[in-house]
Simulated assay, not measured.
Amino acid sequence: MPYNSPMQKILHSDAVHNALIKRGVTQKDLASEVGVSAQAVTNWLKGKDFPRPPALLKLAATLQLSFEELVSTTDTNQPIVAFRKKGAAITTNAHINSESS
């Protein structure tokens, strides 16, 4: 069974650029408002890096964008969960419930 890689997230750079134009500010101004370097914003928009949660929240609030408008994910699959039984043991709901906690 293949291993699924963790969910990848990138910013919708078009949404960010449109929000910057709407507000009449530059990437440098945005970086200052969010509290990061201008290079960090450039890396986010190029997909080289992704903002940490506090910066992402400030970015969304500053640009007045929802998470869905701001972030794109590559999560197309549900996680795969496998259970192994020991010998001829019967898997019960109690086993399944204890594994999901």
Rank of each mutant, 00 (worst) to 15 (best):
A55S: 13
P54E: 09
S5V: 09
G35R: 05
Q27P: 02
S101V: 11
Y3N: 11
S72E: 11
N77T: 14
R84H: 13
N93D: 15
I21R: 06
E33T: 06
T26E: 04
K48W: 04
K48F: 14
P51Q: 07
H95F: 05
K58A: 14
E33V: 03
H95V: 12
I90K: 15
V81Q: 12
S101G: 12
W44V: 07
T42C: 10
K9A: 12
F67Q: 01
N43I: 03
Q8E: 14
L59R: 02
Q78D: 14
L63W: 04
K48A: 13
G35N: 07
P6T: 03
D14K: 14
P6I: 02
P79H: 07
L45Y: 07
G24E: 13
I80C: 02
I80G: 00
K9G: 01
L57H: 10
V81H: 05
P2N: 15
A94Q: 10
H17R: 10
V81S: 02
A40C: 03
S5Q: 13
G47D: 01
A82M: 15
K46P: 15
L59E: 01
P54L: 15
A19E: 04
Q64L: 08
I96C: 04
N43D: 11
A60Q: 10
T62F: 02
T62Q: 08
D75G: 05
S32E: 11
K85E: 00
T92R: 06
Q78F: 04
H95I: 07
A60V: 02
D29L: 02
T91E: 00
K48G: 09
N4M: 09
D49N: 12
G35A: 09
H12V: 00
E99H: 13
V34E: 02
A31R: 05
S66N: 08
T62G: 12
L70T: 03
E33Q: 14
T76K: 13
H17C: 04
L59K: 01
N43L: 11
